[in-house]
Design a binder for these strands. Structure first.
Lengths: 141, 141
DNA sequence: TTTTTATAGAAAACAATTATCGAGTAATTT
DNA sequence: AAATTACTCGATAATTGTTTTCTATAAAAA
């Protein structure tokens, strides 16, 4: 993994810096789909000089070299995901968490749209929102 | 239609103003999914005192009374749609236009996600991006 | 090691959106 | 119809997420 990002950065002419490694490592070891501020807050402890601008600039680079995808889950800020397979996301409108959705057949759906619209579909984003099992339980109490 | 928005506004305690009618009429007679600025620009000619703030405030109200839906097609600004049936959208990455996608079966897909995640799904947004037939033709020349 | 080049991060800039507030106007009451 | 009330308009200012600028500094190349 480390090797991967290191050589990927270098191949594209970007420098390998501690900040970039830290940001990517943090992102790839969580499933919380953090936004820039969450990443910043978590890394600030270990990297006291870390700035939000660096997080944004790094995300830009990581997106460019194909290591992260940017999620727009209908909130006011972007979330980031180091899992690059294109999968839907579901956001809980009560507690705000964003989770992955696996085990659904996207391809058939995409094909249907492609044929119906005559568009050459390059990608898609599926966002669901609702109430997670946890919050459902809380609500019923 | 006019009757509908007029009474809807009044029932919810909002006043019926020329600006609100103009904004809603403009939105419901286009398929271009404009953002606030596009709406503002188009109406400024006929309503010289129209301001962007009014467009935003009106959209807030129209959303609240269920007359428009807000689209977040992965751009930097929101787009608005007076068609309230929940349908996917596809954006052309070349010319930027956003079109509706009809004739696809969403329900089965939503059910699949609902059962797989145990979430109580309240809504969803499907965004596709790609190249529209027009731009495909242009590109091949 | 030296030189070159890109980067980090503070601060300022930006753009979309939201809030504030006084004057104006629609709806309601008299 | 006039007066009252409450909501709204729109100029302006504020806010928020994100991007840019600038310069000392760290990483890569020589």
């Amino acid at each position: 993994m480390e090797v991967c990002i290191t050589s990927l950065l270098r191949d594209k002419g970007f420098k390998v810096t501690p900040q970039r490694l830290a940001i990517y490592n943090m992102l790839s070891s969580t499933r919380s789909h953090p936004n820039a501020e969450m990443i910043f807050n978590e890394l600030q402890a270990m990297y006291p000089t870390m700035s939000l601008a660096t997080v944004y600039k790094t995300m830009e680079i990581l997106k460019e070299i194909g290591l992260v995808q940017v999620l727009n889950a209908g909130e006011d800020s972007f979330r980031y995901d180091a899992v690059m397979t294109n999968h839907p996301h579901v956001r809980c409108t009560e507690c705000g968490k964003v989770e992955d959705v696996y085990d659904v057949n996207i391809d058939a759906f995409v094909n249907e749209v492609s044929q119906g619209t005559k568009y050459q579909i390059m990608g898609q984003q599926f966002y669901f929102h609702g109430i997670c099992p946890n919050c459902q339980r809380k609500n019923s109490n």
